[in-house]
Every structure is written in structure tokens, then in C-alpha cells.
């Protein structure tokens, strides 16, 4: 009971500190803007820990953060093997192939008015579909190893990339295109010097959406069949063994991998599209 009470008190204290920080005079500074979510997250973790011990929640329902951390550090080799199999091979391999395929198709589609008119509705339709459902088919075709996971990822991210890139390539206005024409620029010159740079913010939007989709595709595809390694495999078998601390450890890995992947693409975007208003306003 004492632990539960402590959790409530801790929550109150954390919230009070955040109230003071957020409504205080320094709330616009960078330090405070970083501190507030950090305090919130830390309080949440502490409350979770205290409640699990205080209410004596069994391990098979919800392990405490400390138990997850112990499991995480004691099974680093397994987690690393799963990470390599699912993220580096399946998700990243599929991501590179799918993005390239999407962008190249978009360049082709953009050259023909007919194709754009016909393919875009198909692309928009496909973007809303539960494409994860193709996983059992692709696992059947490409076997249990990472190739089938990469294939699922390719199918999942192809259409978002296509739609975004096509939209981006149409973003130039008539004045800019005319200017290129007065320079006697060829198609590819005006493509590389004008239309591709203008399309970059759109392409990066697609790339950022695809990071999450890639991880989802690679993990879910493993539920339909996989070698005895991989994050999706580990999650489904550990759930079967009621080893929930292992499941949570894998989720921690997935969370870090997802955020790092997204952060990497976002950093690349900042480096390449520094001229765009949405990036400049942050300075």
C-alpha cells in the first residue's frame, strides 16, 4: 500500500514541477522544453515501477521497468541477433529497395500524363489498404528468411513513396519551368537542377512515413513464418512462453530502432532541404 501511495505522491510532485516549469518565465528556453517531457517520462516509469511492486502485479501481466532492464542487459546477444535479422536485413533492405522503386517509378509516371492520371487513383487506393495482409503470400513465395520480410516492406512502402514523389515532382510553378526553358535546359538538366530539389520535401515526407511502415512490415511478416531468429519471431514465441520481460525488451529495441531510423532520415532531410521554409523557421 505504501508503494502505491508513494506512486501517487511522486506523480503529483512530477506534475507540479512540470506545471512550474511550463508556466514559468523560462518556459521558452530549450532546456525547459527538453526537461519537461523528460521529467514526464521519468515519472511515468517510476510510477509504473512502484505500482507493479505495490499492487504485486504478476510478471505474466506486466513486468516492472527494472525487470525489463535486467532482461535487456542479460540477453544482449539474442537481441542483437534479432535486431540484425529483422531491422538491418529485413526492414532496411526492403526500405532501400522500396524507396528506390517508388522514386524511379514516380519519375517514369511523371513523364506521362496518361500514366499519372491512371496510376495515382490506384496508388491512393493502395495507400489505405491493409497491405500487411500480403505477408502470408510473400512468405510463401520468398521463403522464411529475411528476403520475404524485405518483400513485404517493399510492397508496403512502394505506394506512399510513389504518391509523394509524384506530388513533389509537380510542385514547380510555370515561372520556374519557363526560366529553365529560356536557359535551354534539357529534360534531365531541369530535372536535376529544378524539379528534384523542389520535390525533396515531399520525397522526405514519404521516406519518413516509410520508416515506421518498414519496421511494422518486417515485424508482422515474421508472425507468418520465420527462421528461429528475429524480433517478430521472438515476440510471438516469448508471448507463448509468458516471458513478458523478453517481449518488452524486444519492444524497447523496436522503439529505439524506430526512433533512431526516423531521426536519421529527419537529420538527412535537414541537411538536404535546409532552404525550405519549414526547415528555416526552426532556426
Amino acid at each position: 500500500m505504501g508503494l502505491v501511495l508513494m506512486a501517487v505522491v511522486l506523480w503529483g510532485v512530477g506534475w507540479w514541477i512540470n506545471m512550474r516549469l511550463a508556466n514559468g518565465p523560462r518556459s521558452e528556453t530549450r532546456l525547459v522544453q527538453l526537461a519537461v517531457p523528460t521529467i514526464f517520462g521519468a515519472t511515468l516509469l517510476a510510477v509504473w515501477e512502484l505500482l507493479v511492486h505495490g499492487l504485486e502485479v504478476p510478471l505474466v501481466i506486466l513486468p516492472a521497468p527494472s525487470e525489463i532492464a535486467v532482461r535487456f542487459s542479460s540477453s544482449l546477444p539474442i537481441l542483437w541477433a534479432d535486431f540484425t535479422q529483422t531491422i538491418l536485413k529485413g526492414a532496411l533492405g526492403g526500405y532501400v529497395m522500396g524507396c528506390l522503386a517508388g522514386v524511379l517509378t514516380a519519375v517514369l509516371v511523371d513523364r506521362s500524363d496518361f500514366l499519372r492520371r491512371g496510376l495515382l487513383p490506384v496508388g491512393n487506393f493502395a495507400a489505405a489498404l491493409p497491405i500487411v495482409g500480403t505477408a502470408p503470400i510473400l512468405v510463401m513465395w520468398y521463403g522464411f528468411d529475411w528476403q520475404s520480410k524485405a518483400a513485404v516492406v517493399v510492397v508496403m512502402i512502394f505506394f506512399p513513396m510513389l504518391v509523394n514523389t509524384v506530388a513533389g515532382l509537380r510542385e514547380t510553378d510555370a515561372m520556374q519551368r519557363d526560366l529553365m526553358q529560356t536557359y535551354a535546359a534539357s529534360y534531365w538538366q531541369s530535372f536535376f537542377k529544378l524539379r528534384l530539389p523542389v520535390a525533396l520535401p515531399f520525397i522526405f515526407n514519404g521516406l519518413k512515413i516509410s520508416t515506421t511502415l518498414a519496421l511494422i512490415g518486417a515485424i508482422v511478416a515474421e508472425f507468418f513464418g520465420s527462421p528461429t531468429v528475429g524480433m517478430g519471431f521472438r515476440i510471438s514465441t516469448s508471448v507463448g512462453q509468458l516471458a513478458l520481460d523478453m517481449v518488452w525488451a524486444e519492444i524497447v529495441v523496436a522503439a529505439f530502432a524506430g526512433s533512431a531510423f526516423y531521426g536519421l532520415v529527419a537529420a538527412l532531410e535537414r541537411a538536404l532541404t535546409f532552404w525550405h521554409p519549414s526547415q528555416r523557421s526552426r532556426l
Binding site: T211, T212, L215, I216, I219, V220, F223, M231, G232, I235, S236, V239, L244, V247, E250, I251, A254, A255, G258, S259, F261, Y262, G263
Partner: peptide, 10 residues
């Protein structure tokens, strides 16, 4: 940015 769907079986 996290594949929360990994939580589903659990």
C-alpha cells in the same frame, strides 16, 4: 515512429 503493432500479441 515506433512499430506499436509489435505489442499486439502481448
Amino acid at each position: 515512429t515506433i512499430p506499436i503493432i509489435a505489442l499486439a500479441p502481448m
